[in-house]
Structure formats: C-alpha cells, structure tokens
Amino acid sequence: MAITPLPIGGKLRFAAGSPNTLRSATWMVVGGTNGRDVYVSMRSLMNELKFSLHASGNWRVAMTSESGIADNWVWEDSPFRSADEDPRVVTRLAPPPEVDGWRQALDIVVSEPGLQQPFPEKRVKGGAISWWRPPFDNWVRTFAVLISRPGLEYNPRNFPFTDPVVGVINLPGRSSVVVITKLFYRPWTVEKVREVRRDFENAGWRQDGADSPLLFKLGTVTTTVWDLGLDPLRSA
C-alpha cells in the first residue's frame, strides 16, 4: 500500500493490538514546523514528557513546560546531565550515526507482557491511529523512528529499509521522519519486560493511575524504549 507522507508539522499515531482487545499504548511522533525537529512520546504523555530530537543535535528526554515540574526537581542516575542542567531535562541523548542518510533515532518495543486492557481514547481529529498486529509469546514488535538528512526526502524506490512503513512525516529542509515496524523473536526481552512491569506494579503503579512510567535504555547507536502497558488512560 502506498504511503502518503503527512505534511510538515504532521502527527503520526500508532499502536499494537486493536481498540477493543489487548493493546499497547498509543505512541505519537510529531514533526517540527520551523526546523527538522522530531518529538516522540506516548500519546497520553506528550504534553508532559517527551523525547525531543532537534536538528541541531540537541537530543534529550525532558518534562514539558506544561508538566508543572518544580524548579528544584533533581534527576539522578544520568551521566549525561550537567550540574547546572535545566531541571526539566531527564537526560540528554547522543544522536546515532547516519547510515545511508538516515539516523535510527528510537526503537519502541512492544511485548505481550506489556500489553494492557482496552481503554477509552480521545478521537483523533482529522487523522487516525495506525494499528498493527500485537506480538505474542516470545516475540516483540518494534517501531523504529528514522530521521533523514537534509535533502533526502522519503521515497519508497530508494528507501534503504524493507520493513513495513507505519507512516511518514515531511520535515523542513526536504527531510523526512519515517516509522517502520517489524516482529522479532526476543525471549530475553519479553522476560525482562515481564519482570520490570511486575516490579512497577508491586511499587503501586496501575494502568488506571495518574502517571505512567517511561522506561528506556540509552544506546550509542539507538535508544530503546519499552512499552510497559501502564498507560495512565489519558490522551493528548
């Protein structure tokens, strides 16, 4: 099926499962309007906590100004923060190297123990959520976020990846952000998500709670984000 890129400033929403069955959180990628900037988060957290991947190379995970975070908040366990860092910044990220003109910025990983019960979700105005078959047993579904260099717009004829394309957003500077998806056999990842979700639930986190944990692993190549199935039932 041919993919029609969303215009500059577009918003791409996607999830594994279906609205009425076990499902992942809805994830959201937003393209910048004034530069080749890309923003990524769960739809429910986009107005509070997100990955900001700026064309300048200033990549970070940070609370938003709307989150109401206190100025004296202190984040720990991040070697990428300076002592005088903006208190909203959780950590900074190192942009991965370009390969064939593309950076694989993030891998969002969905697994069976990270799926959650269906929940009411705010209607998407002028758009839709792209739904994909959920993973099962020891398989995971990965959504990879790819950003191209200036002057390299998405073109299916010379796109260097063969995995299914979830969606494309045009960026300023004749660039693109593309999300692709694939199923992988990863039993060790599935077990890790099961253990971590159990730990969060034992600590009091619930799907119907007010907040959601965002678990990610910084990498020298690509940062990995795990969907734990503890979406706080709020929409952006």
Rank of each mutant, 00 (worst) to 15 (best):
Val61Leu: 15
Val61Ser: 01
Ala62Ile: 00
Ala62Tyr: 03
Met63Ser: 09
Met63Leu: 08
Thr64Trp: 05
Ser65Met: 07
Glu66Ser: 14
Glu66Asp: 09
Ser67Lys: 03
Ala70Trp: 04
Ala70Pro: 00
Asp71His: 07
Val74Asn: 13
Val74Lys: 12
Glu76Gly: 13
Glu76Leu: 10
Glu76Cys: 04
Ser78Lys: 08
Pro79Asn: 05
Ser82Leu: 12
Ala83Val: 06
Asp86Leu: 06
Asp86Ser: 12
Val89Thr: 12
Val90Gly: 01
Thr91Cys: 14
Arg92Ser: 13
Leu93Trp: 00
Leu93Ala: 01
Ala94Pro: 01
Ala94His: 05
Pro95Glu: 10
Pro95Tyr: 06
Pro96Lys: 03
Pro96Ile: 03
Asp100Val: 02
Gly101Met: 09
Gly101Trp: 08
Trp102Ala: 02
Gln104Asp: 06
Gln104Gly: 03
Leu106Trp: 10
Asp107Phe: 07
Asp107Ser: 15
Ile108Ala: 03
Ile108Gln: 04
Val109Ser: 09
Val110Met: 03
Val110Lys: 00
Pro113Gly: 10
Pro113Gln: 05
Gly114Leu: 05
Leu115Trp: 01
Gln116Trp: 00
Gln116Met: 10
Pro118Phe: 00
Phe119Pro: 03
Pro120Cys: 06
Arg123Trp: 02
Val124Leu: 07
Val124Asn: 02
Val124Glu: 09
Lys125Phe: 13
Lys125Asn: 05
Gly127Trp: 00
Gly127Gln: 09
Ala128Ser: 10
Ala128Pro: 00
Ala128Ile: 04
Ile129Trp: 05
Ile129Gln: 06
Ser130Thr: 06
Ser130Phe: 10
Trp132Ser: 11
Trp132Lys: 13
Arg133Gly: 00
Arg133Val: 08
Pro135Arg: 06
Pro135Gln: 13
Asp137Gly: 11
Asp137Thr: 08
Asn138Ser: 13
Arg141Ser: 12
Phe143Thr: 11
Phe143Glu: 12
Ala144Val: 01
Ser148Ala: 15
Arg149Ser: 15
Pro150His: 03
Gly151Ala: 07
Leu152Trp: 06
Leu152Lys: 11
Leu152Gly: 01
Tyr154Lys: 03
Pro156Leu: 01
Arg157Asp: 13
Arg157Gly: 11
Phe159Asn: 11
Phe159Arg: 09
Pro160Met: 12
Phe161Gly: 02
Phe161Thr: 04
Phe161Gln: 05
Pro164Met: 14
Pro164Leu: 15
Val165Phe: 07
Asn170Ala: 10
Leu171Glu: 00
Pro172Arg: 13
Gly173Pro: 07
Arg174Ala: 15
